[in-house]
Amino acid sequence: LTVSVVVAAKRENITHHQHANVGDLSSAHGFHTTTSTSYYVTFLVESGDRIELCVSGTEYGMLVEGDTGRLTFQGTRYLSFERI
């Protein structure tokens, strides 16, 4: 589906996970932490509806609040944004 939209908002969700070091069930030898970041963009459709989709870090960096263009998505899956 392709619709005309405005980029309304952007947000990042950073998650930290702490794990016991490999082979150390007691945690006596410490932990290591992994971090993951998810990127979300909210698009405002002409009807006034808002759609929030998860995008790659590259796409996130290229989109600016206020950008106007054509959003292509399938269900909740972001496919592309073409700036007008």
Rank of each mutant, 00 (worst) to 15 (best):
A20D: 10
T76P: 00
R77N: 07
T15H: 10
G57L: 03
R77C: 00
L53R: 11
A9W: 06
Y78D: 03
V7L: 02
V64S: 12
R83K: 15
V6W: 05
N13S: 14
T2A: 12
G69I: 08
V45H: 14
F43W: 05
G69D: 08
S36D: 11
E12N: 10
S26F: 06
V3W: 01
T58F: 03
A20E: 05
T33N: 13
G66M: 05
H16G: 08
G61L: 01
G61I: 00
L63N: 09
G23P: 08
V3G: 00
V64W: 01
N21Q: 12
V64I: 11
T42P: 07
N21C: 06
D67Q: 10
V64Y: 05
G61R: 12
F73I: 01
H16V: 14
Y40N: 05
E59G: 02
Y60T: 02
R83H: 11
R83E: 09
G30R: 10
F73N: 05
S38C: 00
T35C: 03
L44D: 05
F43P: 08
H29D: 05
H17Q: 12
G48F: 04
F31R: 14
D24A: 05
F31S: 13
V6L: 10
R77S: 06
R83L: 12
V64P: 01
D49V: 06
T35A: 07
S4K: 15
T58N: 11
R50M: 10
S4R: 15
L25Y: 05
Y78N: 06
Q74G: 08
S4E: 14
F31Y: 15
D24P: 09
D49G: 08
S38F: 00
Y60N: 04
F43L: 05
G30C: 06
Y60W: 03
F73M: 09
S26T: 15
I14N: 11
A28N: 12
R83D: 04
G23S: 07
R11V: 01
G66H: 09
E65T: 15
R70E: 08
V64G: 04
G66S: 05
I14K: 15
R83P: 08
T42M: 02
D24F: 03
T37E: 08
Y39K: 09
G69Y: 03
M62C: 09
V45M: 12
F73Q: 04
R11I: 01
L44V: 03
C54V: 04
G57I: 06
V64L: 04
R11Q: 10
G30Q: 10
C54S: 13
E52T: 15
S56H: 09
I84D: 12
S38Q: 14
A8I: 01
T37R: 15
V6K: 15
V64H: 12
L63S: 07
V22Y: 12
G48H: 09
A28H: 09
T33H: 10
G23C: 08
T33D: 10
S27V: 00
E52I: 02
D49T: 07
E65R: 13
Q74I: 09
A20T: 07
F31N: 13
G61Y: 00
Q74E: 14
A8K: 15
T72S: 15
L25S: 09
R50S: 09
G57A: 07
R50V: 06
E12Y: 02
A28I: 04
